[in-house]
Write a protein that binds this DNA or RNA. Structure first.
Length: 839
RNA sequence: GCGGACGUGGCGGAACCGGUAGACGCUGGAGACUUAAAAUCUUCUGCCCUUAGGGCGUGCGGGUUCGAGUCCCGCCGUCCGCACCA
């Protein structure tokens, strides 16, 4: 028997056997309880990176564990295969996006297979293939028929040199990333999905997702952004921009008597109208648009306003005139693009009023007596009673809100309303490498759905990227079709769908993939919702929200009776590595540097190297470690074990050479342990207890995805077994240990399991049962404290009565010495834990 | 600016409900085995004091408690998200 475990030979052998036997095939018809474990499918960018390895290892441990616990487990894998990188590669390397993508898939699939993941490859799918996206087109048309898809004008970033639409990330400092040309805003007619119809239920649904991280739920809540308030109008003293009224939105109608100005966005029709006649207004608007548009940039930017000279009349007092400003902090696409300022009770308005010398009035106070107390150094945004507000005086904030809304509605100048931050989902992309939108534009019929029997609308392969723009636009034979309705010559839609559509239902297709329709309702419902979904936090909002929306939309049209697609969500941390910088400031990769005592040097030229911060592995900082050579060197199990060890899975995992070597040593240690055949007789109660405690702890920790703790439990058991003298208990424990580690390091587990003469696969074995009788210790260590300080420990039988423990503590030599004959004033006894003597 | 998370040895991190802080791993030291190296095994490894032993220690300052890493108040720092949300 080999004294060393050789992963080079063993890994592939077991992987082939699992494959041959279909060990990880999930059956839709199984009578076992079902469990769906899913990791976010990868974009086929070229090669697997450490982040993938970590993500898929976590899911794999859970999937294998659940199988051993008796579940029929669905653990599939596929490819999020449409997207811009393929088109970029097409332009740069002159390869077809499809060819580039399919080659990457082949490479990455081979890499994944070498890690021995318990995946059902028979359900593999790639979103770029017609047998996937054709069904997506059918679903899109179902939503279209149900009125959940519509078309409207929308702005895009247009690169006038490359003649193409740019994503936000392709716009750098207002210029196209390739051409460097100043980006223009263009209006195009685009397709939208009515996600706003679902705003309320998407928000409420968050409340049911108790197995999601709070952080993600909060991010989605903020993204949906429900605000309850009031929409109402100020009359303009004189008409402007063809308007006689200015409609504003506020969440604080209770402070209506505290307003001292009204402000509109620089994009507001009034502002734009004024700009045409007054150059200084135009200049102010242009000034507002300089600089960044992110929250952080805008927040720190100076609050600026332009007094238009116009006045508006207060709805509750026509004699009261307020100045109308254009202000850089008012957003056109939120509410009505206009608001009123209450400097006393809103900090931003306070700063604005201070700057422009506007009145700062108090309308909320802690009591009626403090109505005249001036607002000091900052706005008071808290609650209290309303003051200086006519009919509202004495009411609380909530009561006043209701009263103002009631009066506005009665008098017809405003109404209570809910405003959402969420906007409809624009799904049109002016790109080739995506799902064609199955619509035909006819001169006389307008947009017409492609008849279902003509699906899929297949992307033409004969395209070239040597000219700027979308190749579909200039593909004459593909775009030219007859109108399905009137038969006249018509033109295909050349936009493709946002790739987030592809990832909004792939988990349903994994569960059920008939050839003639997107999925079978009964089959899909037998697996859904996904029990545990694992992926990066970068998808906390868009992907997860769109998938939730898509699922609810399917429910609404009666296609699938599932409300939430992902019951449990886990967002894992990144894999990080130290960074290295050469003297000239350029980044160096880990294999270009070596340690020299306490310092680092460049291997090639011996120049000193400065080690930098530990950061997320990225190509730009060159601190990546390619998993494949690591697997070559150490085998799949060592890499998997490393991914699970030390760092809690939700936190970052620092990659280290020493760490992977430690993992390798442990894999070998497991092997050696399994090879010792010192047969023994008799029981070892202490070891039995350790084994059963470990069985329980490892199971609980895997279920909680606390892999680092499960790893620590296993180390302890391994050490206990090694130290124990031969006995029947020891043999039993050594065998059970193989099952406990098998979800994590399946290859060495199988090898040792088979070497131990077991029939069947470790992967097919049942998870060992923990005997409850062996989970409790019969002796416990009691801490003895004097005044809360630990002075001694003693051993007592579990469940010993308080009196006994107190006596034992008082007779401790150390305690006697410290008490110097005095008796304690008070004794606190926590059974099975400690005795605290208060002197 | 707003929102959120976090802060424990040389490092990654344990610590259930307030009850022996530092499990487990990495690194490092000492030793065994070996011609030698690797591998392996034994052992030590929070800081300070000269030892028996003692003192100090969970970012900082307070508080509650017999007892605080854990609860409360106030700071400081780091990281993440952001859409100025009226």
């Amino acid at each position: 028997m080999a004294s060393r475990f050789n992963p080079l030979a063993a890994d592939a052998r077991w992987q082939e056997l699992w494959e041959e036997r279909g060990t990880f095939h999930a059956s839709n018809d199984s009578s076992k309880p079902k469990s769906y474990v899913l990791e976010m499918f990868p974009y086929p960018s070229g090669r697997i990176h450490m982040g993938h390895v970590r993500n898929y290892t976590m899911g794999d441990v859970l999937a294998r564990y659940r199988r051993m616990k008796g579940f029929e487990v669905l653990h599939p894998m596929g490819w999020d295969a449409f997207g811009m990188p393929a088109e970029n590669a097409a332009m740069e390397k002159k390869v077809h996006p499809g060819e580039w993508t399919r080659e990457n898939i082949a490479t990455m699939k081979a890499q994944l297979k070498r890690l021995g993941f318990a995946l059902d490859w028979s359900r593999e799918l790639a979103t770029c293939e017609p047998d996937y996206y054709g069904h997506e087109q059918a679903l899109f048309l179902d939503l279209y028929e149900a009125g959940l898809v519509y078309r409207k004008q929308s702005e895009v970033n247009w690169d006038p040199v490359d003649m193409t639409v740019l994503a936000n990330e392709q716009v750098i400092d207002g210029r196209g990333w390739r051409s460097g040309a100043l980006v223009e805003r263009r209006k195009l007619s685009q397709w939208f999905l009515k996600i706003t119809d679902f705003a309320e239920e998407l928000l409420e649904g968050l409340g049911t997702l108790d197995q999601w991280p709070d952080k993600v739920r909060l991010m989605q809540e903020n993204w949906i952004g429900k605000s309850v308030g009031m929409r109402f109008s100020f009359r303009l003293e004189q008409p402007a921009a063809g308007l006689t009224k200015l409609e504003v939105f506020t969440t604080r109608p209770d402070t209506i008597f505290g307003s001292s100005f009204v402000a509109v966005s620089p994009d507001h029709p009034i502002a734009l109208e004024l700009a045409e006649a007054q150059p200084e207004v135009a200049e102010f608007i242009a000034d507002c648009k300089r600089g960044g548009t992110t929250a952080a940039e805008l927040e720190t930017a100076e609050k600026k306003g332009f007094d238009t000279g116009l006045k508006v009349l207060h709805p509750l007092d026509a004699e009261w005139k307020l100045p109308l400003y254009i202000a850089n902090f008012v957003l056109m696409d939120y509410g009505t693009g206009a608001t009123f300022g209450v400097p006393g009770h809103d900090q931003r308005d306070f700063e604005f009023a201070s700057k422009y010398g506007l009145p700062i009035n108090r309308v909320v106070a802690s009591s009626l007596d403090e109505a005249d107390k001036p607002i000091a150094n900052e706005a008071e945004s808290g609650g209290g009673v309303i003051v200086n507000s006519g009919f509202l005086d004495g009411m609380d904030v909530e009561g006043a809100k209701a009263a103002v809304i009631a009066r506005a509605e009665a008098e017809g100048w405003g109404q209570g309303t809910t405003v959402w931050r969420l906007r409809d989902w624009g799904v049109s992309r002016q790109r080739y490498w995506g799902t064609p939108i199955p619509i035909i534009h006819c001169e006389s019929c307008g947009p017409v759905a492609v008849p279902k029997e003509q699906l899929p609308v297949v992307l033409p392969e004969d395209v070239s990227f040597d000219q700027p723009g979308n190749p579909l636009d200039r593909h004459a034979s593909w775009t030219k079709v007859d109108c399905p309705r009137c038969g006249a010559a018509a033109r295909r839609e050349t936009d493709t769908l946002d790739t987030f559509v592809d990832s909004s239902w792939y988990f349903i297709r994994f569960a059920s993939q008939p050839g003639d329709r997107p999925f079978d309702k009964t089959d899909a419902e037998s697996w859904l919702p996904v029990g545990q979904y694992i992926g990066g936090v970068e998808h906390a909002i868009l992907h997860l929200l769109y998938a939730r929306f898509w699922t609810r939309a399917l429910k609404r049209i009666g296609r699938l009776d599932v409300e939430e697609p992902f019951q449990g969500l886990f967002t894992q941390g990144m894999v990080t590595h130290e960074t290295y910088k050469a003297g000239d400031g350029s980044w160096l990769s880990p294999d270009e540097v070596k340690r020299d005592g306490d310092d680092w040097v460049h291997i090639e030229n011996g120049q000193p190297v400065t080690p930098g911060r530990v950061e997320k592995m990225s190509k730009s900082k060159k601190n990546t470690v390619d998993p494949e050579p690591i697997v070559d060197q150490y085998g799949a199990d060592a890499v998997r074990w490393f991914m699970l060890s030390d760092s809690p899975p939700e936190r970052d995992l620092p990659w280290s050479e020493a760490g992977i070597e430690g993992s390798w040593r442990f894999v070998q240690r497991l092997w050696r342990l399994s090879q010792e055949h010192a047969a023994g007789e008799g029981e070892d109660r202490a070891l039995d207890r350790k084994l059963h405690q470990t069985i329980a702890a490892v199971g609980a920790n895997i279920e909680a995805l606390a892999f680092n703790k499960a790893v620590a439990n296993i180390y302890e058991l391994a050490t206990a077994i090694e130290k124990a003298p031969p006995s029947r208990s020891r043999s039993t424990a050594a065998e059970a240990l193989l099952l406990l580690v098998s979800p994590m390091v399946p290859h060495v587990a199988e090898e040792a399991w088979s070497a131990a003469g077991k029939t069947g696969l470790a992967a097919d074995a049942s998870w060992p049962e923990a005997d409850p009788a062996l989970l409790v210790e019969d002796e416990v260590t009691i801490a003895v404290q004097v005044n809360g300080k630990l002075r001694d420990t003693l051993t007592a039988p579990k469940g010993a009565p308080r009196e006994t423990l107190q006596e034992m503590a008082l007779s401790s030599e150390k305690v006697v010495k410290i008490l110097e004959g005095k008796s304690p004033r008070k004794v606190i006894v926590v059974p099975d834990r400690l005795v605290n003597l208060v002197a």
